[in-house]
Each structure stands twice: as C-alpha cells, then as structure tokens.
C-alpha cells in the first residue's frame, strides 16, 4: 500500500506576510526607541557640561554673571507638590461622585463633556483665566500660589478622567460581593473601588506631573518669569512670592538670551526630575498596594 507522506510539524517555516509584518513592527519599535534615545541623549550631551554644583545650588547673579537654577528647582517642586495635594483629592472625589453617586445622567454627561473640552484647550487660556481670576480678582498677585491654583484646574480634568476610567474597570462582581455582605456604598468605595483603581489614579498623577512640569506659557503669566533669589522665609511666604519654574527658565534662557548651553542644562535637570517623580509615584503605589 502506498501511504501518503506524513506531514511534518518540525522545521519552522516563515510565512512571508507574517515575516513582513514582524519586520515592520520591529522597525517601528526601533524607530521609537532610537528617537527617544536620540532626544534624551542629545539633551544630556549638550546639557551636562552646564551642570555644575553652583549651577544646581545657587541663584542667578546678574552682577557676577553666574548662572544658578536652585530657586527654580524649588519653585517647580513646590508647584507640583501643592497642586497635587489639591487636585488628587478633588479629582478622585469628583470621579467617585460622577461614577458612583450622581443619579442625573444628563448632568454627568454635561460635566464629562466639559472636562474633556477643558483637557483639550491650550494652556495659555488657563494662564489668562488664572491671571484675571486668581492674581487680580482674588488679589493673590503674580505668585507661586496663583500658579498652583491655575495648574490645579488645568490638570483636574486629567485626574478625573483617568480615575473614572479606572473605577469603571473595577469588576461588577466585586461590587456585588461587597454589597451582598452588607457593605455601605462608602465602605465599598473605601475598601474595594479606590484600592482597585490605584493604578489608574497613579497614571493620572504621572500625566498630571508631566503636564505641570512642562507648563510654561500659563505660569509665565500667573507665577512669574524669573527667580533671582534663594528661597527664604516660611513655605507660605515663598508661595506668596512670584517665581519661575524650570520650564519658564528654560524658555527665558533659550529665547531672550540665546544661552542654549544653560537651556540644555535646565532641560537635563527637568528630565531627571520627571524621571525621579515617576519613580517616586510608583514607589508610593507599591507601598500602598502592599498595605
């Protein structure tokens, strides 16, 4: 009898279309990686020579003509820290209200539409609003605190949106299980919904930090465009004075002085700060999850 030849499953064959697609995907991934590395690498190569101990630890001195960005580093951290302290509870609270308590579907829809629109408008509009409302109307003057408040309303939609998405992703079975055991709504939110959404909330924090650190136009208007003095006095005193953040300084050095060396130095510091803040956020998340 003549049996047909057995089909073999060994000996891996490449299917041409598969091969092509893989190639394309790897190519794109490589492009992305190269782009990021080039960008970061270029900034660091141009910027690192400008970074010295006095650069990091002193203020600019126009008489001695020395450059220092310490006040701007402090201003940046202040603004990010205080804006987060206000906008994380507000954003998470707002999202919890919208997705768990609000009964009026039309109202929820309207708020969502508004917050999506707000997330998309150019930051200079927040700057003008912040200037007129916080600096002039509330008499806060051009100050870090006005910057904090302006950035808070700017990133609030991001916080709310990401938290809402995270809450929505919590399986219905968890809710049923908890309610079935007699949990009240607030108990359910506290013990199941917020802990399960922690990752999403943290994504919101990271995105918000990125947006705040990179903001220059709005802060130029509401928080001030220079930082000539070393920080002094109480935290409140510092917040009530004007001051520039690193991004604003970067703009100032690059645009009004053409001092690209310093600008790249500031950019390098910014990259490091953003990386550190992200690591810190992840660490906080890890600690909270362990508890």
């Amino acid at each position: 009898m003549n049996n047909p030849p057995l089909s073999r499953i060994t000996g891996k064959r490449r299917r041409p279309s598969e091969f092509l697609l893989y190639g394309l995907i790897y190519l794109l991934a490589a492009c992305l990686a190269v782009l990021v590395l080039l960008l970061v690498g270029y900034i660091l190569v141009r910027g690192l020579p400008a970074i010295t101990v006095p650069f990091l630890t002193t203020a600019e001195n126009p008489i001695l003509e020395t450059v220092g960005i310490f006040p701007s580093i402090v201003n940046t951290l202040y603004i990010v820290f205080f804006a987060l302290i206000i906008c994380v509870p507000l954003g998470v609270g707002g999202a919890v209200y919208l997705s768990e308590y609000a009964k009026n579907k039309k109202l929820v829809g309207a708020i969502q539409f508004a917050s999506e629109t707000l997330a998309g408008i150019p930051s200079i509009l927040y700057g003008i609003f912040g200037y007129v409302f916080f600096c002039v109307l509330l008499n806060l003057h051009v100050s870090l605190i006005a910057g904090v408040l302006t950035l808070t309303i700017m990133v609030l939609p991001i916080m709310m949106r990401t938290t809402q998405e995270a809450l929505r992703a919590v399986p219905k079975a968890y809710r049923e299980g908890a309610l079935g055991l007699g949990a009240t709504k607030w108990y359910l939110i506290r013990t199941i919904l917020i802990p399960s959404s922690l990752k999403g909330i943290l994504t919101g924090v990271i995105l918000s930090v990125g947006r705040m650190v990179s903001e220059s136009a709005a802060l130029l208007l509401v928080a001030g465009g220079s930082a000539m003095y070393m920080p002094r006095g109480s935290v409140w005193e510092q917040l009530s004075h004007s001051g520039s953040t690193l991004s604003v300084e970067l703009y100032r050095y690059a645009m009004s002085r053409g001092d690209n060396g310093t600008a790249f130095g500031i950019a390098s510091v910014l990259i490091v700060i953003v990386a550190l803040l992200n690591l810190l956020t992840r660490f906080v998340a890890w600690r909270l999850n362990k508890k």
Partner: peptide, 21 residues
Amino acid sequence: DVTALRKKVGMVFQAPNPFPM
C-alpha cells in the same frame, strides 16, 4: 437597615468573586 439585613441573609454568586486581597 439593609446592612443588617444582608448580614442576616448572606449571598453566594454564580461566578466566584473573591476580592483582590
């Protein structure tokens, strides 16, 4: 008091739903 009611009347669901803890 719904909480007291659900303490007295327990429920087991179709698909196992342990909490992520």
